[in-house]
Each structure stands twice: as structure tokens, then as C-alpha cells.
Design a protein around this nucleic acid. Structure first.
Length: 476
DNA sequence: TCGGCTCACACTTTTGAATTGC
DNA sequence: AGCAATTCAAAAGTGTGAGCCG
């Protein structure tokens, strides 16, 4: 376990932009997030975490579970989670390590998972662990169930967003605080590549108990079993079909959708790992990570054409005040003086967010200060002139998990925000009709586009617009 | 030919409705 | 009648590996 001081945010806030303590309680924030099962995550990370993605959707394992502190007990918060590409490459498993196989595929529509408890007061979030158990990953770009869409053989990192907002309607004017944990980085796969990961999963996932004893579930043995009990297999066969037929038709679930910008976070995520980390992970299967020719990404994985495809979907006015935070690679780069990171009592990595002087309703005029702090936030290793570390673009949809008391997709309808509410408020024009004029009043609290502009990257001639609207549309 | 993906399978845990006891 | 605890069947979540596909 790394000492607390080894953890630090990559994204520091210049003192000049920090709100004077006590000046405005609403803006004060000392939010701290810790990752549960951190050791388990690290175990996986050392081997090169793989997450199975399937068409119908697959849960993550390990699950994302976090602890929160520092929230205002009576203020309401919304908890979001999404996935961002770690880099711009597609990978392949070669013998015992991951290797770069080429450029990443164009990003699928990007969705954000909304924690079903949202919105809830800070006391609620702090009183117990916040689990994202129900989140599902899919490789089906046409997915209608609100799962988070990923590409197989690509690397991703989960992000957690805390938004102080009384309801979903207020999100777009609220302060986002984003947290990431490097050890949660994973490669999306449709079938396990690394046998060690398979074993680790089987050892730790109760659902995989049946596979713990090697060879207990081979095709041959299963055939023998079904031979011994053919009626059981038949019953199974009959039971499965109706289930698929009963699948709720598209449109019966709650799903709100919005776009968001990613440039800034991508700049953070795409930072090359420092040399120390490579030493520490010399047994890591992340082969590409260790290849100097691959460790620094110098161009976007997405061609401008691809970006424009996503850009065309929707745009929002440039926001200013979104402050993403993330850990450095855990166990590295001690920086006690500047660090706000700490380790919780359980030795878990945690990160204390310091919200700077962030306007609740970001002002366009705030752009310059926001831009100014970017260079100092970037580690020296970040390539200079890195105009678009990763021009990750996408559509950010909110997928609401069903509440605990209601099963399956129908559960979406029991969310505190009904379909009508959500759609009525958040839905933009149909997918094909997105245009800048649709969201004239957006003040998305995001620095994504700020960074985008800082780097001189404009989506075509849309300099004043981010292509990532918040809560823009629904796709079901 | 090969790498990646899909699917059905057996097994396990989780969920929630029904039942029971107080 | 109301509530909590218990039971149990159904649903959901696992990795596997053959077969399919490009």
C-alpha cells in the first residue's frame, strides 16, 4: 500500500483561482473519494485488468465502489460514472502481453451512468459505500438498454463525477467534480486474453465459483452432465427463449442522455506514465505502455473526419469551470506539498478534491483564467504542442440503473425522475437534428472545451462550441 | 489461416414474493 | 392487523469453448 503522500492530483489549482475559505459555503468543497477494494483493483491492475463486454451487457468485476466524505450533509448531489479511453490505440494480446494493434476505432456514443440514488443528500452518499454494481458494459453500439458502450480491445478508465445539484435539471449549471483511480484502468475484451486475469476473477467473483476447480466446466464434462440429465437441458432451453422474447421493447426504460466534452480529461488520461511507474510494473502485461514509441501519443486516434461525425451530433456553448481531478499513477510521484490526496483509514487511495473558485453558473468570461492554469497542470512529460492529446469525442448519455427495489429494465421507470420528466427536460431534438441552436442556454460546467480551445483545436469552425452537450438527447 | 466475436451452457448468487411467526 | 424474519423459486450474473465471421 502506498503512503498517502504518494498520491496526488495531476490537476492542481492555482492559488489565485481558489476561493477564499469561508467566503461562500456553497462553493466550499473538501470532497474526498476513496476507492473500495483498492487492493483487489491493484491486483488486477498489475496483471492488466480485462473487462468482459458483451452485446447484452456485462457487469464490471471488480465492481466500482467508492466512499465519499466532505460533502455537505444537506446538499443534494448527483453521482455519475462514465468511461474514457486511456489512449488512442487498439490493443491485441500477443503471447503474454498487450501490444498496440493500431489506432483506436472511432468512439461509440459515450454514455454516463447515473447512480440510481441520485439525487441524494450528502449525508446519504457519505453514510455508506456507493456502489456502481449495476453498471453494465456493452460493445453493442446500437445498445438500447442504456449500458455504457465500449470498444473491445481498447483501454478505458472509469471516471466518477459528483455534481451538487438538487435535481437532474440543475446539473448543467452545477459544479462537476471528477475523480479517477489509475488502478481501475482496464482493457475491454469480448473474451479473456490473460489467463491470470481469468483466474483472479474466478477466485474473487462469487458468480464464477463453478469455475474455480479447473476443468469442472469443460464442454465435454458439460455434455456428459446434460447427457445424464437431458430434461434439465431441455428445460433450460425452453426457459431461455421466452425470456428473450419478453425483453422489454425499446422505449420502456428510463434513459436520459446528454453529451459532454472530453478533451480536458483526455489530456489528463493520455498523459504518459512516468518512468517510475514502468519500473514498478515491469511485470505488467501492458506491453505497449512500456514501449517508448507508444507511451507518448502524439496524434489523435480519431481522424478529423471521425471527430466531425460526432461533432455533428450536437454542440453546446463553451463551458468554463469544470475541474477534473485524477490520481497520478498510484504509488508514484510523491508530492506532499501540493498534494491533497490522502489515504483513508483502510489504506485505500483517496483523493480530496479542492474546488477552486468555480462559479456555479460558469461565465464565459472566466475562460482565460481557466486556460491559464492548464499548462501548469500538465506534467512535463506531456508533449508540448500537444494540441489534442486525444480528441476523444462522443455522445454522453445518462443511463439510469433501476432502483434496488425494482427488477430489470422496468425499474428505470421507478427512478426519481420519470421518463417524462427526464425526456421533457433533457431531450434535445432527435439524434439527427442536433444543432448548435438547440441549446443556446447551456452553461456546461466543463473545462473540456476550454482545453479544446486552449489547444487550438476547433471542431471545424465551431470555435465557440463544445461538441459535448449535457443532457441533450435520448437514444431510445 | 487467424483473431475476434457470439452463443448456449452449468453453476452460483441475488432478488423479491410468499409464507410463517410473533 | 401489522411487522419482521424466513423460505424458496425465479432471475441474473459468471467463465468456457465451439463455432462463426471477416
Amino acid at each position: 500500500m502506498q503512503p498517502a503522500r504518494d498520491l496526488k492530483p495531476n490537476f492542481s489549482i492555482p492559488p489565485s483561482s481558489a476561493a477564499p475559505a469561508g467566503s461562500d459555503p456553497y462553493l466550499q468543497s473538501n470532497v474526498r473519494m476513496t476507492l473500495e477494494d483498492s487492493n483487489l483493483w491493484k491486483s488486477f491492475h498489475e496483471l492488466g485488468t480485462e473487462m468482459i463486454i458483451t452485446k447484452p451487457g456485462r457487469r464490471m468485476f471488480p465492481h466500482c465502489k467508492i466512499n465519499l466524505s466532505g460533502l455537505l450533509p444537506y446538499a443534494k448531489y448527483i453521482m455519475l460514472m462514465d468511461m474514457v479511453p486511456v489512449d488512442g490505440f487498439r490493443y491485441k494480446w500477443n503471447k503474454d502481453r498487450w501490444e498496440v494493434a493500431g489506432k483506436a476505432e472511432p468512439q461509440p456514443p459515450c454514455r454516463t451512468y447515473l447512480h440510481p440514488d441520485s439525487p441524494a443528500p450528502g449525508s446519504h452518499w457519505m453514510k455508506q459505500m456507493v456502489s456502481f454494481l449495476k453498471l453494465k458494459l456493452t460493445n453493442n453500439t446500437l445498445d438500447q438498454h442504456g449500458h455504457i458502450i465500449l470498444h473491445s480491445m481498447h483501454r478505458y478508465q472509469p471516471r466518477f463525477h459528483i455534481v451538487q445539484a438538487d435535481d437532474l435539471f440543475s446539473v448543467r449549471w452545477s459544479v462537476f467534480q471528477t475523480f479517477t483511480f489509475p488502478e481501475t484502468t482496464f482493457t475491454a475484451v469480448t473474451a479473456y486474453q490473460n489467463g491470470k486475469i481469468t483466474k483472479l476473477k474466478i477466485d474473487n467473483n462469487p458468480f464464477a465459483k463453478g469455475f474455480r476447480e479447473q476443468g469442472t466446466n469443460t464442454k465435454r464434462q458439460r455434455a456428459l452432465r446434460s447427457h445424464a440429465c437431458p430434461e434439465k437441458s431441455l428445460k433450460r432451453l425452453n426457459a431461455v427463449k421466452p425470456e428473450t422474447e419478453q425483453r422489454a421493447p425499446p422505449g420502456t426504460e428510463f434513459r436520459s442522455t446528454f453529451y459532454e466534452g472530453y478533451e480536458q480529461e483526455q489530456a489528463e488520461l493520455s498523459k504518459p506514465k512516468d518512468g517510475e511507474s514502468m519500473k514498478e510494473e515491469r511485470y505488467s502485461p501492458w506491453g505497449a505502455e512500456h514501449d517508448p514509441s507508444h507511451s507518448l501519443r502524439t496524434e489523435s486516434p480519431l481522424g478529423s473526419d471521425t471527430r466531425e461525425i460526432y461533432n455533428a451530433e450536437q454542440m453546446v456553448p463553451t463551458p468554463t469551470s469544470y475541474q477534473p481531478y485524477r490520481f497520478h499513477e498510484f504509488g508514484k510521484s510523491p508530492s506532499p506539498s501540493s498534494s491533497t490526496a490522502s489515504t483513508s483509514s483502510g489504506g485505500r487511495p483517496s483523493f480530496e478534491s479542492r474546488v477552486p473558485d468555480v462559479a456555479t453558473v460558469p461565465d464565459q468570461d472566466a475562460k482565460p483564467s481557466s486556460l491559464e492554469m492548464l499548462p501548469s497542470s500538465c506534467p512535463p512529460s506531456l508533449p508540448t504542442g500537444h494540441a489534442t492529446p486525444q480528441d476523444y469525442t462522443g455522445v454522453l448519455n445518462v443511463a439510469m440503473a433501476p432502483p434496488p427495489t425494482k427488477p430489470g429494465v422496468i425499474g428505470h421507470m421507478y427512478n426519481p425522475y420519470t421518463t417524462e420528466q427526464a425526456l421533457g427536460q433533457w431531450n434535445g431534438p432527435p439524434h439527427s437534428q442536433y444543432g448548435s441552436s438547440a441549446y443556446p442556454g447551456h452553461h456546461l460546467p466543463s473545462d473540456y472545451s476550454a482545453q479544446s480551445m486552449h489547444h487550438g483545436y476547433h471542431h471545424g469552425n465551431m470555435a465557440e462550441w463544445s461538441q459535448y452537450p449535457l443532457f441533450s438527447y435520448s437514444c431510445w
